[in-house]
Structure formats: C-alpha cells, structure tokens
C-alpha cells in the first residue's frame, strides 16, 4: 500500500473510531455522575432537601413525572406533526409540479436549520396567543375528555402550545425521510395502479403507501427522537410542574420534560442535585437511544436503501 493510502486509511478509521469513543464517553460520564444521586437516600440527605429535589423520597419518584412529561409532550408533537409531515412529503413527491417540489423540499430542510430558541420565541409571541380561542372552544365542548379538562389557560402557556411548536420542529426530519421513500416507490407499481384506471390518490393507496409503510413508521420514530431531546422550546413556552397530568389546556397541569427541567434548574443546584439532573439526563439518553435504535432497526430490516440512510442522518 502506498503511504498516502495508508495515511488516509488511518485518518478515516480514526474518525470512525472517534464516534464510538465519544458515544461511550458520554454514556460513561452520565453513568458515573448519575450514580451518587441514584443511590443517595433522598428523604435523609440534606443536599436534596431544598430546591428542585425538595420532597422526593427517591430518584425514581423524581424522574417518573419527568419521563412522563417528556413522552407525553413528544407524543402530542407526533400526533399533530406526523400526519402533516407525511402530507407534505406526499405532496412534494407525487402532487406538486417539479419546480414547486424542489422549492418546497428546500424550504422544509431550511426549517430544520431554525434554532430552537427562535422556535421558543415564536411559540411565546405567536402560538400562545393564537391558540387561546381554540383552547377555549376545545375546553367548552370537549372538556369531558380528560385531555381537554380543567381550568383553561388564559395565557396559552399550555402543553398544547408546547406540543404544537415541537410538532413544527419535527416536521423536517419526518418530511425529508418520507419524501425520499415515496420517491423510491417503483415506477412499475405506480404504473400498474394507473393502468388499472386508478386516480392519483388511489394509486398512492395501492402502490406508494404499501411500499413506504415501514419507512413512514421509522421516519416518525426518528421525529419522536428529535422531539424527546428538545429543551429550549418547551422550557420557554410552558410553565411546568413535576406531575403526571394529561391535561393540555391548563396553566397548572403541564408535565415538565427532562431536558427543560435540567436546563431550568441546573444553575441553582448544589453538586448532588446536579448529579440528580444528570441522572435524569441518563434516563433521556436511554429513551432516545432506544427510540432511534428501533427506528434504524426497522429501516434496516425492511431493506432501506443508501439514500434512505443518508436522508435519516441529515
């Protein structure tokens, strides 16, 4: 082998290895730092008596509502965002004229480049006031459903507002992956459907959706992975509490998320409390690692192509 080849191989192998080292390092850091807070006696330890950890008997009772809040807000984002994202992807791949499709795809990718803080500010100043009338309506007519029950918020600082902004934030990844898969639908099957006399929508149902089913699922899971980790938007939009609540229209029933909780409480915490926050971070790490892992597994199992993997890592 020539020296230049050898040098390049060492460099690229090293870069690839670095990924493993970083991932392992992060995991190790989380585990080592989280250890003391997880094993500590929460009711007796004076360091945990005040502040954010006040009144909890163990780490698990502290992290429980946070895990709930994280999953719940992400789920709202998914329910609101995924159908729209898939609709956009379908429009780009099968309905829009080619030039419009290009522009639209570009715009969606641009959406991914907007910083979380900007989304947070947008949530505060635009989304919150905007959804107040809808919240009143939902509460008035559908208040018997637990989701929409309780004293409706007059500020808009609600789980619904947070979920809505999160939904916009996860649009790009779901859209771009779904679009790639829709575009890969074999022409053969599309033409088979059209030649039988199907309308375009029937063609989508006959040929595109069956082909893309697993891809849509994994795109959605990757969107979920993104939603799980979003800190700033949620921290800025809602005034949360550590509790198990399914209410999405109230000021007081907003379940806190792991990421927002850590960001809000970190500055005022003592060392052991910081360890406790890091331990909640470990929980988030495990959850989002699991979600991403399942998503990748579905893609690989159903023979996703190289293009698909490229889209996923964007």
């Amino acid at each position: 082998m020539r020296p230049s080849d050898r040098i390049f191989r060492v460099l690229s192998t090293g870069s690839a290895g670095l990924i493993m080292v970083i991932l392992a390092g992060v995991a190790l850091f989380l585990i080592i730092k989280a250890g003391p807070a997880i094993v500590a006696n929460w009711s007796a330890n004076p360091d945990l008596a005040g502040g954010t950890t006040h009144g909890y008997t163990s780490f698990w009772s502290y992290v429980g509502p946070l895990v709930w809040g994280t999953l719940f807000s992400s789920l709202i984002a998914l329910v609101l965002g995924a159908p729209v994202a898939i609709g956009i992807a379908l429009f780009i791949s099968h309905y829009a004229p080619r030039r419009l499709a290009g522009v639209l795809g570009y715009l969606v990718d641009l959406l991914a480049a907007v910083p979380s803080v900007v989304f947070g500010l947008w949530g505060i100043f635009v989304i919150r006031p905007f959804i107040i009338p809808f919240q009143d309506w939902l509460n008035h007519y559908l208040g018997w459903i637990p989701l929409f029950s309780g004293q409706v918020s007059q500020t808009g600082s609600t789980m619904l507002a947070g979920g809505l902004v999160l939904a916009v934030m996860i649009l790009p990844i779901i859209t771009s992956i779904s679009r790639e898969i829709f575009l890969q639908t074999p022409k053969l099957h599309e033409e088979a459907a059209l030649a039988l006399g199907s309308t375009r929508w029937e063609m989508v149902k006959l040929a595109v959706f069956p082909y893309a089913r697993s891809g849509i699922l994994s795109a959605t899971l990757l969107g979920l992975g993104r939603a799980l980790g979003e800190t700033m938007a949620i921290a800025m939009i809602i005034s949360p509490a550590l509790l198990f609540s399914v209410r999405i229209l109230t000021d007081t029933g907003n379940s806190q998320t792991i990421a927002a909780n850590a960001a809000l409480n970190f500055p005022e915490s003592n060392p052991l409390q910081r360890d406790a926050l890091i331990a909640t971070g470990l929980a988030l790490f495990v959850i989002s690692f699991g979600v991403n892992f399942i998503a990748r597994w579905i893609i690989s199992r159903t023979g996703g192509s190289r293009r698909l993997r490229k889209a996923g890592s964007r």
């Binding site: 074999p186 053969l188 099957h189 033409e191 088979a192 459907a193 030649a195 039988l196 006959l206 040929a207 069956p210 082909y211």
Partner: peptide, 12 residues
C-alpha cells in the same frame, strides 16, 4: 388495459 414489460403484481 395494459400489461407491462416486467410483471408488476402489487407485492404486498
């Protein structure tokens, strides 16, 4: 109706 060069039954 139309039949194509390569057989294209719906795979699912």
């Amino acid at each position: 109706g139309m039949v194509f060069q390569r057989a294209n039954p719906f795979p699912t």
